[in-house]
Amino acid sequence: MEILYLSIALFLLLTLVAGLWRVLQGPTSADRMLAAQLFGTTAVACVLLLAQAFEYPPLRDVALIFALLAAVAAVAFIRRAWAAEEQNDVSD
């Protein structure tokens, strides 16, 4: 079972790294931020799998913190950063 948990965790890390392409590519700021949001969800799953693989329950608390704070950076983006760049870029 441990091998399965670890391989899925590795696989999730791979999909996460692939998602970075969207951060680099954009085109809008929102697209970049979305990828970061994806990172949050994937990281939660990844941490939960590692907790199971190493039979180390405290890691679930790390996942809990990830889940609780998944929204903070994205909300800051919507309320502050994206609101501020109103005039200049729609395309970029």
């Binding site: 929102a30 931020m33 979305l34 949001q37 969800t41 939660v44 679930r60 889940a67 609780l68 929204a71």
Partner: peptide, 18 residues
Amino acid sequence: LLIWLLVLLASASIAHLV
């Protein structure tokens, strides 16, 4: 389950806001 529900809430809200 709590972790899953929290992620659901966060991502549904963020999707709407974006």
